[in-house]
Design a protein around this nucleic acid. Sequence first.
RNA 1: GCGACUAUGGUGUAACGGUUAACACUGGGGCUUGUGGAGCCCUCGAUCAGGGUUCGAUUCCCUGUAGUCGCCCCA
Length: 422
Amino acid sequence: MASKPSTDPYKGVRDFYPKDWERINGIFSTIRSTLAKWGYEEYNASPLERSDIYEAKTSEEIVNEQTYTFLDRGDRRVTIRPEMTPTLARMVAAKRRELPFPLRWFSIPNLFRYERPQRGRLREHYQANVDLIGLPSGEADIEIIIIASEILKAFGAKESDFIVRINSRPLLNAACAAAGLSGGAIARYVRLLDRKAKMSADEFKTAVSVFTNKDPLNFIEQSSSDPDVAREKKHLLDTLETLKRRGVGNVVFDPLITRGFDYYTGIVFEVFDTSTENPRSIFGGGRYDELVSLFGASPAPAVGFGMGDITLSDFLYTHSLNVPSTGSAPQLYLGTPTPEDRVGAQIFAKELREKGGRVFVNLTEKSLGDQIKDAVKRSIPLFLAYGSEEKKSDTVRMKILATGEESALAKTELPARMRAGS
RNA sequence: GCGACUAUGGUGUAACGGUUAACACUGGGGCUUGUGGAGCCCUCGAUCAGGGUUCGAUUCCCUGUAGUCGCCCCA
């Protein structure tokens, strides 16, 4: 006999029991309604992609090793999407000439990476992707960062709860050029910057000296005489200034923000939790002007960000921010004290549903007391016994389980009371 | 890919190398056949797998597997 299969979910992925799914849907619906206010439209695609769309854009084979990639039965190489941006670029490139630019699009895909799970990082996560496509650096960058901030505020976060750190890839590149770096050395230096916070000053200095005796950071921090550096720095500081004028007070310039992917071509930003318990990066994004043209379409400049559900959820938890209800849980438990009259209860339930009520009808032979216990365990707020007596009468008695309060009311006014009660 | 730590019912814990592996919660049933959350009683249910040391292993050792946390890398 075969051994029993384990009830554990596959490594690094989560089961969403109804309560978990209710919570994550609450998070999604807050994101959706915020984006709707800004005119963003939701799109979607399959999690399966041809592997080549990831290979085209990233020179790194490491990315490949951290994806789920396999051959299908027709010998096609297939990858389960590790991120949404290449899919988005592909979709946009495919209809480059017919879509109404600029596009304001978002999606909440589940993404997969093959790696060791650890705190805040699993093999599957959901990530809200928000993109503004078809506009160059400027107001588009500002809108994206404001929206990133607005979403957190929509959950009730205050500006003191998080901080937006922005930087610019062109600025980094100009500073590297001024220090005499080029090509691969720039990429390696950028990666080094990313780790600087985890190193001591001396370690960093030693690591830099491998490339150059002039640290590019110095060109950025001191007011540089290099015209490219000066221009890019001014552009970034102007953006910062505009963000503050438009009400984003918690934004700073941070030359250490780089973002891992090398497809970024402009502004990059990362949002950090300011709490001391959870001082992590929550999410980030940036400008990628060349991705669409990789598919052979004419270029479409783009800026966007991706907000993962796990880090976001940690952030909400850290700051005791509640997730709004999705309004899909049952409102009323219809108990059946006399099961032989259950058809009557079902007909009554049908009337309530037609008025928009969410009604859970008992189908067991449990005693009425046990049915009430059952309703409590299921977190259904209202209880109503419907048996032979209620069938004959025009009134019913509705119990509010949280308080124990019970009131008699006409059957016709029940739907209104249900709406008020939840 | 590398490292550290951990592994006992569904969950959380207990058991000097020596009992019938204990306790709490949860689940099922009862005291209670039209009004709950309490209480009491009954009940289902576990030593991750394989090897070694030993008279004897939940306990010590090894390997594997799984999980957690770091590193690498980063959505």
